[in-house]
Design a protein around this nucleic acid. Structure first.
Lengths: 343, 343
DNA sequence: ATGATCTGTGTAAAGGTTTACATCATCTCC
DNA sequence: GGAGATGATGTAAACCTTTACACAGATCAT
């Protein structure tokens, strides 16, 4: 209507011929306002095109309607779908999403801590496996927070994610069912909780299959493509080859597959490979990658739902919230190559 | 320090024994404050751990330090890297990023319009090819805005992206140089500016190569994998096959490649394929996809830089800001199959 | 010595909301 | 009919900043 500055609650009050308090009540607690008055107010709102000034509201309430989402790398193929779940859930409750990526630099994390301190975000979603605020992490007064996708190592922060142990177990079980016994685990890590849990699933599966611990092949890795390729090279140097590679995530699996192909091997005829996550690329690899699917959107939705509960005063849950991962069978797994059957 | 509510400017003033006005000035216009005073204030800030309350600041200034980024689909493989560029540039200027995804639903777009009206964002980055606010788009009073990745169809909004014509031209030129003359363009669209420009590049390239207009094969498409596969099926029905497919983007190219492989053809021996964008998958396809790379991070950075200029009062540029796309040669292109040489 | 200029600081208003408290009219019950 | 409860609305304070304006003291030119 007017070309000048946006309508305030006072404009509405004037047109509806009531006080600003009544307008505010008509909006937030309509049951406390007479029907006739509410009608007038609503008309006035329609006429003016009034929208509550979020800044003023947040200032008065001492709490914003923004949620800060911090990830080490926005480009992580796992991130975007989780973000979709987070965003949908937040928006449908009137919250907005603020994003930050730290690139694993504690200095950058600190800048986002400032965001929190200056009241710009009411809650925090952590995509990172650790608190990203450097040495101030401990003393920092954090708002209600929820970790997602990867449990937070150092913070006693509620976590929503997939059951890593169960997921890994499904992958080993498939390999075992196909006849594999020499299964390498690529991407072990003591500092990344998600990874060490996947390792647990691996061990549990091989325990059940009766494969003794000394026959297991474990290689470290940080979950990058490069780490997969490197681990493979180490194995070829040592000359202790498995018949199957169970990789801690899809990136690692991609690295392993690239390495195997570079050496002229066929997957799955010569070696089987499994991943974890089911990133978009997994479908398009040749062969397509058998992996464990993270229900990413659902994780995001559940995490945000939990955070919103915390914001409205609920107690943090005692346990982690673990969703069930599905085994996605594609073409990178078959029975072991003949030379492994001989033994 | 204190476990209670965060320090305000008044706490700082009390400790430094000055007025709150002086504290504010010491922070924002230090040159207007005596050295000795500034020192006291800085100490007091250190003691209290004071951070400016962004809400109060924005309210007073009538302008927030948030930029709203709206995309139809956060999961778009092109999006995340652009976001990295946007975020880095914004953060280094004290701005934060608010994100919204509309899933092409004008209703959802409207909800973000409310965000803008309520002063929560000072500026707008549009990842969409059109204004996402439905029929209110025209009357809406938008804050300074910049379109990115795809020119905005209906809004006179400054645009930062890649030179689509030049990029497409590089792709055709490669195909022509390899000896192709029958080159199909898959993914034409009159409503998507980026696509029609790529078509222009295609036409320009074939003009230069002396391929008459009636020998060109043009198929519509909306840029999804499915659209690529569908277009391919149409061609096989018509039985007017080209020797090469120049696809409007990588997704389309992936669709075409899937279709060709399903029919048992070899790429590039039987058909060459090019894409556009260089999404992460492009590397991992078999064969890997020859395509045009979008400098995504650079685009994001440039777009945000422009937006920040607009926010500080600069005039919108007369022209679009176009970055140069690079041709990325991989393995999906070779000379035409023999049967095409015969004619 | 007088007035003008400059420097540094304080006072107070404004920005738009929400909400405790006060007020007033109406209704209920004896 | 009057006391008290109930319901609807208004008044004003508070949230925390920034900044125009006022003021005081020092410096300078005459």
């Amino acid at each position: 209507m007017s070309t000048s500055s946006p309508a305030t609650i006072e404009d509405v009050a004037r047109i509806a011929q009531v006080s600003i308090a009544t307008v505010s009540r008509a909006i937030h607690t309509p049951e406390k306002v007479a029907n006739s008055t509410r009608l007038k107010v609503n008309q006035a709102i329609a006429i003016t095109g009034y929208t509550t000034n979020a800044m003023a509201r947040s200032l008065r309430l001492g709490r914003s309607n923004m949620i800060l989402v911090v990830a080490p790398d926005i480009g992580d193929p796992n991130f975007s779908n989780i973000l979709v779940g987070l965003e949908n859930e937040a928006r449908s409750h009137g919250y907005g999403i603020l994003i930050g990526h730290t690139q694993n630099d504690p200095q950058r994390g600190l800048e986002y801590l400032k965001f929190l301190n200056s009241n710009q975000a009411a809650g925090l979603i952590l995509f990172t496996g650790i608190l990203p605020f450097g040495h101030q992490s401990m003393t920092a007064r954090l708002p209600p927070s929820v970790g997602v996708f990867e449990p937070v190592y150092n913070g006693g922060i509620p976590y929503v994610g997939v059951d890593d142990i169960e997921g890994a177990r499904k992958a080993v079980d498939l390999l075992v069912a196909e006849g594999h016994r020499k299964i390498a685990f690529i991407g072990d890590s003591r500092t990344r909780l998600a990874y060490s849990r996947r390792r647990q699933g691996y061990d549990a599966g091989l325990d059940a299959a009766g494969v003794p611990a000394h026959e297991r092949i474990i290689l470290e890795g940080d979950g990058t493509i490069e780490s997969g390729r490197l681990a493979l090279e180490q194995l070829f140097m040592r000359d202790t080859l498995p018949s199957a590679f169970m990789c801690v995530n899809d990136q690692t699996a991609i690295g392993v597959m690239i390495g195997l192909r570079a050496r002229g091997y066929d997957i799955p005829a010569d070696f089987s490979v499994t991943g974890f996550d089911d990133v978009p690329q997994a479908t398009f690899m040749t062969p397509s990658l058998t992996t464990i699917r993270q229900p990413r959107t659902a994780i995001g939705k559940a995490a945000m739902a939990l955070l919103l509960e915390l914001l409205s005063g609920a107690e943090p849950p005692d346990d982690e919230i673990l969703l069930t991962p599905d085994l996605i069978v594609r073409n990178s797994v078959s029975g072991p190559a003949r030379r492994f059957l001989k033994r």
